[in-house]
């Protein structure tokens, strides 16, 4: 894993609400010295150009925007710049929105009500290569991977099933536990918790389970 770098984490903001962008920028600049907002964009096209030009470490991405939203930015940027990390930031609580950006390649999903301090922590975590699961996202993923009676058998057991431990970790995330608390609860290291969460993220992105693919395709714009 990466060693802590002295250089601040550079962040690019994508949101079609200028007011919200300036709010996040002010909060991050004021309260967190090691996270620096280097640019912002209000549309998909601006975002694609800005990210290509500024090469930020982390992109904070709004889900709902005109011209396809966050998923469209992900689709257009990721092939060219696979090293840029995306963290979705949205007011939406709908499974369709959350799962759609995760499957498009975002490494985490937090809601806009998150505090500046927590947001900075989430930014650092995705930068370090980890995933960020809000309790609600954890709930969605648990639901999607649950074996309901009558559900189709998983096609690829490696991808379509969560291990017992991954399920335990997700459950604790949904209960509002922090990584450190999860580690203490399950008698494992924080590092192992991170590994489990990253593995769950990978499965969420790649699995063909019915709910996941349906949620991802069912996305509607409000």
């Amino acid at each position: 894993m990466t060693t802590p770098t002295p250089a601040p984490t550079t962040v690019f903001l994508v949101d079609d609400h200028a007011l919200f962008r300036s709010g996040v920028r002010a909060e991050l600049d004021r309260s967190v010295p090691d996270v620096r907002v280097v640019g912002e964009a209000g549309s998909v096209a601006e975002a694609v150009a800005g990210i290509a030009h500024l090469r930020p470490d982390v992109v904070l991405l709004d889900v709902h925007m005109p011209d396809g939203g966050g998923a469209e930015v992900l689709r257009r940027v990721r092939p060219a710049q696979p090293d840029v990390v995306f963290l979705a930031l949205s007011v939406s609580d709908a499974a369709e929105d959350v799962i759609a950006v995760i499957r498009a390649g975002a490494r985490g999903y937090v809601t806009k009500t998150i505090s500046g301090r927590e947001l900075a922590a989430a930014v650092r975590r995705v930068r370090a290569g980890d995933a960020v699961f809000s309790p609600r996202l954890a709930g969605f993923v648990l639901d999607a991977f649950s074996d309901r009676p009558g559900a189709a058998p998983p096609g690829d057991p490696e991808l379509d099933r969560l291990t017992r431990r991954e399920r335990d970790v997700l459950r604790l995330l949904a209960r509002g536990y922090a990584y450190k608390e999860i580690a203490g609860e399950l008698f494992i290291s924080v590092k192992t918790v991170e590994t489990h969460v990253s593995s769950v993220l990978r499965k969420t992105q790649l699995s063909n389970r019915y709910e996941l693919s349906r949620w991802a395709s069912d996305r509607r714009l409000v």
Binding site: T113, P135, R136, A138, G139, L142, D143, S146, R148, A174
Partner: peptide
């Protein structure tokens, strides 16, 4: 204060 329940399962 904020209370946001997460419900999993049917």
């Amino acid at each position: 204060l904020t209370v946001r329940p997460v419900v999993v399962g049917g």
